[in-house]
């Protein structure tokens, strides 16, 4: 029970804390006030509560695959928002009057969506056990451990990205975001395959013997770079396509910032 709760909560918290830590570190690098984090966390939590109330109804949409579609849309949105964020960073920092506010809005929306998605599963999970007190306590302690690990990893990444020089911070931050965004895109594709909206295929490769997705490392890599042990060709092509797109924009972003500074 304990281990399960640790793994479940860790996986969800890790994805959200990764987004938050990288974006807040980049805020620092770009000289943006971090006030937005608190607000977007609140929004995200409210979204998670709302989603967990509405999920029963949402599941019935689209012939029973509403949950997959909603989740996929959220992940697609996060991908697009991260793409937009990188674009905004790539913009000429000289004429920032407009994009300065937009960039904060984009970051806040990304974190809100991320927290909504991840918080929802934790809420549903915890709620299921709230009636059974002794088990609930075990599960809650496991959840706290999982959350602590997730937040600690996020904090470490935050310090790591912040501690680098301006240029390296930018490269590391945008690179991590590109990986996260590509992972989101591939997850969205997977969900649409699960909903039978996209054709399913045989896996392109199977690395589950080498690095199973269920292992701690597998979970970590899943959250960090969207690792899949048995991805289909469609998933892989979207993953690498998205990654490439973001990395290209990121290269422009680093260049334009470098020239500006």
């Amino acid at each position: 029970m304990l281990l399960t709760s640790v793994v479940i909560v860790l996986r969800e918290v890790l994805e959200a804390s990764l987004l938050i830590s990288v974006l807040s570190a980049l805020s620092g690098v770009l000289g943006i006030h971090r006030r937005w984090i608190g607000w977007s966390l609140l929004f995200g939590l409210a979204g998670a509560v709302g989603y967990s109330f509405g999920v029963a109804a949402i599941s019935d949409w689209f012939d029973g695959v509403g949950q997959e579609v909603t989740s996929a849309v959220m992940q697609l949105l996060i991908f697009l928002l991260l793409l937009m964020f990188t674009f905004l960073v790539a913009q000429d920092p000289g004429k920032q009057r407009f994009s300065g506010k937009l960039i904060v809005l984009v970051m806040a929306a990304t974190v809100s969506l991320g927290v909504t998605r991840e918080g929802f599963e934790i809420l549903v999970y915890l709620y299921g056990f709230s009636a059974d007190l002794p088990r609930f306590i075990t599960i809650l302690s496991g959840s706290v451990i999982g959350a602590c690990i997730g937040i600690s990893i996020g904090a470490l990444i935050y310090y790591l990205v912040s501690a680098l020089s301006y240029r390296l911070s930018l490269i590391a931050g945008l690179g991590l975001l590109a990986l996260v965004a590509a992972g989101m895109l591939s997850q969205a594709v997977l969900l649409l395959i699960q909903a039978d909206w996209l054709p399913s295929q045989f896996p392109l490769w199977d690395s589950s013997g080498w690095l199973p997705e269920s292992s701690v490392t597998g979970q970590l890599l899943y959250a960090l770079i969207g690792y899949e042990a048995t991805p289909t060709a469609l998933q892989a092509s979207f993953y690498f396509g998205g990654l490439l797109l973001l990395l290209i924009v990121a290269v422009f972003a680093v260049r334009s910032r470098e020239q500006a500074s």
């Binding site: 999920v55 029963a56 599941s59 012939d63 029973g64 695959v65 949950q67 997959e68 599963e121 549903v124 999970y125 709620y127 299921g128 056990f129 009636a131 997977l190 395959i193 699960q194 909903a195 039978d196 399913s200 896996p203 589950s208 199973p212 997705e213 269920s214 899949e228 042990a229 048995t230 991805p231």
Partner: peptide, 26 residues
């Protein structure tokens, strides 16, 4: 009455099923 999450790493599937509900998974 409680929710459950259908999960399979081998099948690459993951879906939350709320209590007293049904879910479709392809």
């Amino acid at each position: 009455p409680t929710s459950e999450e259908f999960e399979s790493y081998e099948l690459n599937r993951e879906k939350v099923i709320m209590g007293n509900r049904k879910a479709v998974i392809f």
